[in-house]
Design a protein around this nucleic acid. Structure first.
Ligand SMILES: Nc1ccn([C@H]2C[C@H](O)[C@@H](COP(=O)(O)OP(=O)(O)OP(=O)(O)O)O2)c(=O)n1
Ligand SMILES: [Mn+2]
Ligand SMILES: [Mn+2]
Length: 762
DNA sequence: CGGGGGGAAT
DNA sequence: ATTCCCC
């Protein structure tokens, strides 16, 4: 069934009679374990509202966390005003086809709202200045800078769209409170209050934490302004939902904190279903179908009533959100898991026209992929066919050979990707008959680093083994370590690998190559996916550490490749970046000579698919700095230079110190044992596991923010691997010929993502 | 009159 | 591959 596009404040669209609520925003229902343990402090009594006694409505985290949410003001419009300051005092609308996607606040004062039609907007404001916003490049790049800047404050940053970030600043707050006399601490910015209640203050300590959170939020916003010229709104609360909701209370360019005793009265100010992020078009409609028209009716509803329609899990989540309860952790997602480009149009009705459109999209995507440095293993084509009254989309996807990206110049790459796209198109429509498309989207997913984490890690780890010839393979489907032998052939340059898109990304490039080369055109069954495992420990010769990819080719020919462009990037433009960025390039040369020349890499399933792709002497000589220098320069993350831009209302804080999470230093206090076994470090109640191939002595001297990122990285990968194992083993139990093997849905494990990678970018 | 992205669950 | 969610 066609759903009306999700209108915000307007009443457009036609065929679907039922009405919708306004208001934007939504939230991911992130899962995973909470980032912190249950609070040792008192758990606040929940509200006095009777229906709250449903046990699932109780937060397990109480008020233990401090969360900051930052949302940029009229984001696209702000970016355009930055590029062209003469727009600042004019009503500005950002145009995508016939839509004004956002407006600056001058235009809003004139009544031009977000997501309205050009026509309406021009009626309300004839002198509205329109700037095209169909190309998101600038917005995307600005968005990335924002997130990277915020990551300097704390390691836990979660993006939502291009203009929002959640930060879990709990630890930062904690460390600041221990070194501060919290007694006469006053919050910065607004605090939510209502006259409906004279609440007694919560005694669990959250007030001080939230207050400190508001100071941190202010610093973040000031830094965004001084470093990037961007104004923003912040919300501070004890969970993501509340932080996001409360931040909108004072807009633009302002901030609001929600002290916990106000939570219930605050939540009661929301009455429409769609005001809760997480209750979308479909859920809203379903609820209304059940006779639940608004939040007041939803909140007292028993979970059991909702569980029929939504399932127990989703029902509980919805109810909790409706009460302002949200224990989902802030999760750093790392670099994007997909890159896509699309265009919509009146009509594309011929194959040449479709090819031209797709060519344009692919060209842009190649540029973005080159700049990203990773390689996609899957391409998806989505089209919208013209059917009056329908905006249905259909998609097809296929695996693509990494060889395309590694061994071809952009021209031939484009050529071949276009052929792949045409192949997908032909699965969607009969290109020999007349057709009518109104949208084409091309999406690259399954992104994996040419030089994976293993290579980055190995900069400061003991050298990888240099495997030869036969390798030992381990079945991916099981985690029991069962191994077998398999000869590896050099692969052809197939542009399409059937069903590669269904391969779990945890597999190595080598695996995929084997798949291409040895079982090409054959749908992989569970048992045919392999992960490289080192046959035995082998000493490596200094300086040249063959990548696994290379060594597989060794059976045919050695081609040192893979990480070259990556290292090139390292050297490329350090000047243009912040100091912390420039230090990153040096990591490549930061290997201690002795750790290069000596030592064995321990075999470990933990590192089994990251142990390859080690550097091969392709460092750019121009960029060699010493490790010590690199670290020194990154430690004083110098966000102190005044902004180059002198925008009018430069805030009072032209120079704001960028604080890095200093609690890490305590947690990583050096027990100077240099072990090769997995090492653990006390982190509050948790333990951090350091992969066995990491040289602790080098790790230890890294700047704390870099350590944080690496740890986050390792844990992310470990989680993915575990998920993968779980999924694989569970589907393994399915009957052989069932849909398990036919189109076996591996959880499409997101590309091997290294947040640390960005340290080397550009 | 119906952008142009993204992520996760199913 | 689709649906649902978010901006
Ligand atoms: N359906 C949507 C919603 C948003 N955006 C884009 C345009 C916005 O500029 C940006 C951020 O969305 P917001 O909802 O935060 O809106 P703004 O930042 O523009 O305005 P505000 O100042 O209200 O946050 O995302 C979009 O393209 N399509
Ligand atoms: Mn937003
Ligand atoms: Mn915004």
């Amino acid at each position: 069934m066609e759903r009306r596009w999700e209108e915000e404040q307007n009443d457009i669209g036609g065929e679907d009679p039922e009405e919708e609520d306004d208001v934007d925003w939504r939230m991911p229902s992130a899962l995973g374990s909470p980032s912190i343990k249950a609070p040792s402090m008192l758990i606040q009594p929940s509200s006095s509202i009777a229906h709250r006694s449903e046990t699932c409505l109780q937060s397990k985290l109480g008020h233990s966390r401090t969360i900051v949410h930052i949302d940029l003001d009229c984001f696209y419009a702000q970016v355009e005003m930055l590029r062209n300051p003469t727009l600042r005092d004019k009503p500005l609308g950002i145009q995508q086809k016939n839509i004004v996607v956002t407006t600056n606040y001058v235009a809003r004062a004139r009544g031009v709202s977000k997501l309205s039609y050009i026509k309406e907007a021009l009626i309300k404001c004839p002198d509205l200045v329109l700037v095209s916003g169909e190309d998101l490049t600038n917005y995307r790049e600005t968005s990335t800078k924002v997130t990277e800047l915020l990551e300097q404050f704390c390691p836990l940053v979660e993006r939502l769209g291009f203009d929002e970030n959640f930060m879990d600043v709990t630890k930062l707050v904690e460390s600041r409170l221990t070194s501060t006399d919290s007694k006469k601490l006053v919050h910065i910015g607004h605090s939510y209050e209502s006259d409906a209640q004279i609440a007694t203050q919560c005694q669990c300590g959250c007030r001080d934490r939230l207050t400190m959170g508001s100071h941190i939020a202010k610093e973040m916003r000031d830094t965004l302004k001084s470093k990037l010229g961007l104004t923003s709104c912040a919300g501070v609360a004890t969970n993501k939902l509340l932080a996001k909701l409360v931040g909108a209370h004072h807009k633009p360019n302002d901030q609001t904190v929600l002290f916990s005793e106000w939570t219930d009265s605050f939540m009661q100010t929301f009455t429409k279903l769609r005001q809760i992020p997480g209750i979308g078009h479909s859920s809203g409609k379903k609820l209304k179908g059940m006779g639940i028209q608004n939040l007041e009716e939803l909140r007292p509803t028993p979970v059991s009533t909702l569980a029929d329609q939504f399932g127990k899990q989703q029902a509980e989540t919805m109810l909790r959100l409706a009460h302002g309860v949200d224990d989902t952790p802030v999760v750093s997602k790392g670099p994007p898991q997909s890159l896509s480009d699309e265009d919509s149009f009146k009509k594309v009705g011929t194959l040449p026209a479709a090819k031209e459109m797709m060519t344009g999209l692919i060209k842009n995507l190649i540029k973005r992929l080159r700049s990203d440095g990773r390689i996609p293993y899957t391409m998806r084509l989505t089209v919208r066919k013209y059917v009056p009254g329908s905006w249905h989309r259909e998609s097809r996807q296929t695996g693509i050979s990494p060889n395309l990206f590694q061994k071809h110049d952009d021209a031939s790459l484009l050529e071949q990707l276009l052929e792949v796209a045409v192949g997908l198109l032909q699965k969607l429509i009969d290109t020999n008959r007349p057709f009518h498309l109104t949208l084409i989207n091309i999406c690259f997913t399954n992104l994996r680093s040419k030089v994976t984490k293993g290579a980055i890690d190995s900069f400061f780890s003991k050298p990888a083994v240099k495997p030869k010839g036969l390798v030992t393979l381990q079945s991916q489907g099981m985690c029991d370590g069962k191994t077998g032998e398999m000869e590896v052939h050099s692969s052809k340059d197939d542009s399409i690998a059937n069903e590669l898109g269904d391969l779990p990304a945890a597999n190595t490039e080598v695996v995929d190559k084997m798949h291409f080369g040895t079982v090409s055109g054959h749908k992989p069954r569970e048992e045919e996916r392999y992960v490289i495992k080192h046959k035995q420990k082998q000493p490596s010769s200094s300086g040249s550490v063959a990548s696994f990819r290379t060594s597989v080719n060794v059976t045919g020919k050695v081609e040192a490749e893979g990480s070259k462009s990556f290292f090139k990037k390292l050297g490329s433009s350090p000047s243009n970046k912040s100091k912390s960025l420039s230090c990153r390039g040096e990591l490549g040369t930061a290997r201690k000579p002795e750790s290069v020349a000596t030592g064995l890499r321990e075999q470990s399933s933990w590192t089994v698919d990251t142990a390859r792709d080690a550097p091969e002497g392709e460092f750019d000589e121009d960029n060699s700095l010493l490790l010590e220098e690199a670290i020194r320069s990154s430690q004083n993350v110098a966000l102190k230079q005044p902004s180059k831009r002198t925008l009018e209302e430069s805030s009072s804080h032209d120079t704001t110190e960028c604080s890095v999470d200093d609690s890490l230093a305590k947690r990583l206090k050096n027990d100077s044992d240099h072990e090769t076994k997995p090492t653990t470090i006390k982190q509050n109640m948790e333990e951090i596991e350091i992969p066995p191939d990491i040289d602790r002595s080098v790790f230890n001297v890294l700047p704390s923010n870099m350590k944080e990122e690496l740890i986050a990285d390792w844990e992310r990968e470990k989680r993915r691997r575990e998920d993968e194992c779980l999924l694989a083993s569970s589907s393994q139990n399915l009957p052989k010929n069932k849909k398990s093997s036919s189109s076996a849905k591996k959880k499409q494990l997101p590309a091997v993502r290294n947040t640390i990678t960005k340290y080397f970018k550009h």
